[in-house]
Design a protein around this nucleic acid. Sequence first.
DNA 1: ACCTGAACACCGTTCAAGT
DNA 2: ACCTGAACACCGTTCAAGT
Lengths: 192, 192
Amino acid sequence: MQQHKDAPLRSDAQRNRERILEVALAELTHSADAPLSAIAKKAGVGQGTFYRNFPNRESLVLEVYRYEVQQVADAASQLLETRAPEQALREWMDRLAQYAMAKAGLADAMRKATSARGSLAGLGHGPVTSAVTLLLKANEEAGTIRPDVTPDDFVLAIAGLWQIDPHSDWQSRAGRLLDLVMDGLRTGAPGA
Amino acid sequence: MQQHKDAPLRSDAQRNRERILEVALAELTHSADAPLSAIAKKAGVGQGTFYRNFPNRESLVLEVYRYEVQQVADAASQLLETRAPEQALREWMDRLAQYAMAKAGLADAMRKATSARGSLAGLGHGPVTSAVTLLLKANEEAGTIRPDVTPDDFVLAIAGLWQIDPHSDWQSRAGRLLDLVMDGLRTGAPGA
DNA sequence: ACCTGAACACCGTTCAAGT
DNA sequence: ACCTGAACACCGTTCAAGT
């Protein structure tokens, strides 16, 4: 008997939750593996309170970046309105790279949000997959990319992004990778 | 004063080191994050002995898979002798995928062996990079891929491999990814 | 219904004492 | 020169006691 169906949190509980998220955003942005205990402490809540809200690290990370991830996802449809499908796709990828590099923890969140067995809900297969589906569909219909590319293919193809060191000059490395991916998406029939 | 210049290890020390590696291979292959303490225990050595040989997890992983990684790297030149450059490249990628999927810990080793800031020696930038360089060069000269692809580009392009769950049916996902990468490598001029 | 903080478990790392 | 294993530090997780 933990919590009623959709009962709103008690006001103090809600404040606690918000403070945790606030601190976590700052902390995780700085380094992706900041200790959870340190976050609890800085947020001024006990360990138990922390764990009631976020039973494990993944649930915290997903929640912290839910807003940012949603924003990235939303950019897809906006780009499709103002640009040709091909450009929209490419610019979206650039934005994705920018976000990932700016926030150290976001790359992890993305990996989990897109990974098949991310298990945990929230962004389950979520908004990013939807955004990708949208972009791929638009491009397929415009004939700018081949018609057999799945969102899963795409996510694997850009996985190199999450491996780039945000401190080095990631710009050129990411750019070259995305150029390569775009070309791969464009060309003709797949192999045997 | 730990160890003379190239003095051979005392025989008991050498046996210990070998037993650790033996156990570690089995253990890490099964799950990539097996506790180091468990490995030490199963190998029948004290914690201190373990740490003398492998000061951190990475050094152990690199050493454990040094042989396997070397084998994958060597396959490159062998393939180039018996096959057309394009086929050699593609088959090498397939082998890479197979190894990575068979050994849970090897994917991690690969990431570290190829990552720019893997820091630790051993496979520093090592044999894998050499193998990739070889394969890319042969293909560039044969005109089967574009001439501006660096080993770094390639490593980032196939990074999706390390993200595939070895327990699911990885075959098709890896295959589709590698098809896509091959096409990206082949096509004409890069973007703006 | 929610909070706190001590307590526990686990794992990596060090080090004094042995041979 | 090398080994052992107890001891320490750190972090995640649980839970009895409080309001």
